[in-house]
Write a protein that binds this DNA or RNA. Structure first.
Length: 395
RNA sequence: GGGGGGUUAGCUCAGUUGGUUAGAGCAGAGCGCUCAUAACGCUUUGGUCACAGGUUCGAGUCCUGUACCCCCUACCA
């Protein structure tokens, strides 16, 4: 080890301590994880310390002053968490330019005196990043004294662990992005990661859990619903949504049951309670199977083809509804379902509780056609799960 | 050392401002169905809510202490 003497720039965030604390405390609905970490840094020990924002590294954004070399700052770069959040702003400028918006458009997102007061700004991050987003970046913005928009809500997460331990790139322990998408479609990962998001404490990824979650929730509950419906309809009525009777009590009851759960789902989404939302969504999917099971179109068709056709038509409407409300969790599958119903060109429509909810289940109409569809999800076999567990166990 | 989070059924987790018999999914058991990826539906067995005190008419829910797990407290991000 060699000690060297070096001079750095510091963000004098200690001067903003009271202002930051007042701001943190004004955000009453933030996750406890977020505020507790912020307060710990603010209050503990000597309170918020000034933080160096430059580093002696040979890579990074060079420290310059107004585009010119800065005496004493040669060979220095900015510390990433000083630099990176500023790119949140600059990326907005690039984005607005790419959309050919007028040159000041980005300001309506970032400056309160240019309309950013109307913006609801949410950040998502794991707990190790919380100090930079609750303290140093806000300090940077506040210190500039220019009416910069501060974040409205910080969704802090705990960590994801791997088979009871830490992920480790060096030890090749765990699955990483470069391999994950070669192994399974992105919706598999999305579903597991979201329905098991580390919201209250660290969450542990295990292949056993992954396998069970994907097979049960996606393949059995949602995938099988689509499969049994489309295959039955195809074999009995062909590709056309059949003429049938009008909806009766069973359909209306099913709609109101769905409406009730959808309300909770909608609320969980608004409050960014991800696990809770996922479980509501899963419950709504399962109502599809319950409906079919209780309606027994395979029995009824023997005596009353129009009655069975009604069941099929309603079930297709459930299917469309499922695709619309599943889009945040499994967008690729949602699109597959819409494509099957030949409605892929229609924009995903988040159902509104204001509307007549029953009308949502009348969008798939008699006479429309659907495309036969492959199984939405392939199950993960025990052998596959076991060998993956071995493959990614690390050194 | 200081601090944060967690500890609820075999497993993963919900439990709203403390209020009567603590919930869900998975796993287990039984029954049913056969359209479907042996999938689906119905019923059902599992909990002295980590432990010990305390406050209260009443605590998983509040307070104190203890134990265990994870994390933060790096010129690594």
């Amino acid at each position: 080890m060699e000690l060297i003497k070096t001079e750095h720039l510091y963000l004098m965030q200690s001067k903003l301590k009271d202002q930051l604390l007042a701001w943190i405390e004004s955000n009453k609905n933030w996750p406890i994880l977020t505020t507790s970490i912020a307060k710990k840094w603010l209050i503990d020990g000597d309170g918020l310390k000034d933080r160096s924002i430059t580093r002696d590294l040979n890579w990074g954004i060079p420290v310059e002053k107004e585009g010119q070399p800065w005496e004493g700052m040669e060979n220095k770069v900015f510390y990433v968490w000083f630099d990176a959040p500023i790119a949140y702003i600059s990326s907005t400028i690039d984005w607005a330019a790419s959309k050919k918006m007028h040159s000041d458009y980005w300001k309506s997102w970032w400056l309160n005196d240019h309309g950013a007061k109307d913006v609801h700004y949410v950040q998502f991050m794991a707990k190790d990043n919380i100090p930079f987003h609750t303290l140093s970046f806000p300090a940077t913005l506040l210190g500039a004294n220019q009416s910069w928009k501060l974040v409205d809500y910080i969704k802090g997460f705990n960590w994801l662990t791997y088979e009871g331990g830490k992920f480790s790139t060096s030890q090749k322990r765990g699955v990483f992005m470069d391999q994950a998408l070669d192994l399974f479609p992105s919706d598999y990962w999305r579903w597991w990661l979201l329905s098991n998001a580390p919201e209250t404490s660290d969450a542990d990824f295990t292949w056993t859990s992954f396998q069970s979650c994907i097979n049960k929730d996606l393949a059995d509950v949602l995938g099988n619903f689509v499969s049994r419906l489309t295959k039955f309809a195809l074999s009995k009525y062909g590709k056309t949504i059949p003429e049938g009777k009008k909806y009766t009590q069973h359909e209306f009851d099913t709609v109101s049951e769905i409406e009730k759960i959808f309300e909770s789902y909608d609320e969980a989404m608004t409050k960014i309670e991800i696990r809770k939302a996922a479980s509501h969504l899963r419950k709504i999917w399962s109502i599809g199977n319950e409906y079919l099971q209780h309606s027994q179109p395979w029995m009824i068709i023997k005596t009353d083809k129009a009655e069975a056709a009604k069941v099929i038509r309603f079930a297709f409407n459930l299917m469309l509804f499922f695709s619309e409300i599943s889009e945040p969790f499994i967008p690729e599958t949602a699109t597959k379902i819409k494509t099957c119903l030949r409605k892929s060109e229609a924009k995903i429509q988040w159902p509104s509780l204001e509307d007549n909810f029953t009308s949502i289940f009348e969008k798939v109409k008699v006479g429309e056609e659907f495309n036969p569809i492959e199984n939405l999800f392939t199950k993960i076999e025990d052998g596959q799960a076991n060998s993956l567990e071995e493959q990614f166990a690390g050194n």
